[in-house]
Design a protein around this nucleic acid. Structure first.
Lengths: 202, 202
DNA sequence: GTCTATAAGTTGATAGAC
DNA sequence: GTCTATCAACTTATAGAC
């Protein structure tokens, strides 16, 4: 991006993008288990060899797909302003947004879990970032800290731990929805109510 | 099992068991992505064709592995007696046990997510059972209901929803541990503290 | 950058001897 | 029940024309 949005070298003809889109689509429908470069090429309407030209090898392609989704994580808490709106309504909206996000990312997350080679390539720079810590926790914890300062959340709350729990519930609901082809039992509201009031007796 | 623990037909020579164990081992180390009947046979020290004799096809084998793990789910809340021990200590122990359980089951769960054919075979009889509802929720909800009757848990708690949250946290921690080769950030205690006290201000 | 053609290896699965 | 031998189809990846 040195020159007004212009890339270096020859202009792309969209093959790279088509391959990425096709890979993601297959990943969502069928998973990594039977994912082949042949099927990707067929679906993207390109030559199989183009995949290797752009991504080096099969793993490079998968790596590119994962990398494509990492940055999107930071947007999950967007539009949440401490003090604005009801706390419960905010949390329900947040959780619904997180579930939708995880529904898109779950296939990729499953791919990383199910492919040791892919997992190995993401060993150092965290692959775990996609599911929880760092990237996902920070913005949610920041929102909760804001609510804590306003006194709408208990003063001694561990906001990072609370954010982790929210992410856990969202991920669970997304995976369940994928496995059983329908929303998970109970609503997001039920989970939020448990989280708000806690388990312990008054 | 009609005759004093004796099975019908010829006695097994352990090939079936060896194949199942090898499959599970590979699944844990490498995932479904590159799982082949050839490698399974090599690792189990049997002929590849024996796999097809016992399980019909590759999918039948995977199905058998999944089925092997479903029943184990009911033991997760064993040894938990409402009123005995501290509530917090009980929940921490439960959560630790759940994490350990999910750590074993996670590779299989990932396999179901990552293999559309396998997912399809478990569409009707719930595959989602492994991660949350029905099997997993019931015993935990029962324990919480017991504590609720004793007044150690708030009277209006939705015990099913609370059990789901506990399973979600356990699953998250297991997956994170797998992805980053180490325990997830924060302890199980932190999560339990959030769950006990809740988010809302006094 | 994208294609066609092709190579070498691996895949799931079957047949048939013991 | 378990093995060896074998197969056609598919796998990832490369070479070279355009």
């Amino acid at each position: 991006m040195t020159d007004a949005g212009r890339r270096r070298g020859r202009p792309s003809t969209g093959v790279r993008e088509a391959v990425l889109a096709a890979t993601e689509a297959i990943l969502g429908e069928s998973g990594v288990a039977r994912l082949s470069t042949k099927e990707i090429a067929r679906r993207a309407g390109v030559a199989e060899s183009s995949i290797f030209y752009h991504f080096g090898d099969r793993l490079g392609l998968l790596q590119a797909v994962v990398a494509l989704h990492l940055p999107r994580f930071k947007d999950v808490a967007d539009g949440l302003v401490p003090g604005e709106g009801g706390l419960r309504a905010n949390l329900v909206a947040l959780l619904d947004g997180l579930v939708a996000f995880y529904a898109r990312v779950a296939p990729i997350l499953a791919a990383v879990q199910a492919d040791a080679e892919l997992r190995a390539r993401f060993a150092d720079r965290g692959a775990g970032e996609v599911i929880g810590p760092r990237r996902g926790v920070a913005p949610i914890a920041a929102y909760l800290a804001g609510e804590r300062e306003l006194g709408r959340v208990r003063a001694d709350l561990d906001v990072e731990a609370a954010a982790m729990v929210l992410l856990a519930v969202a991920h669970q609901r997304a995976v369940l929805g994928r496995l059983s082809d329908g929303p998970a039992p109970g609503g997001t509201g039920d989970a939020v109510d448990v989280l708000l009031a806690g388990l312990a007796a008054g």
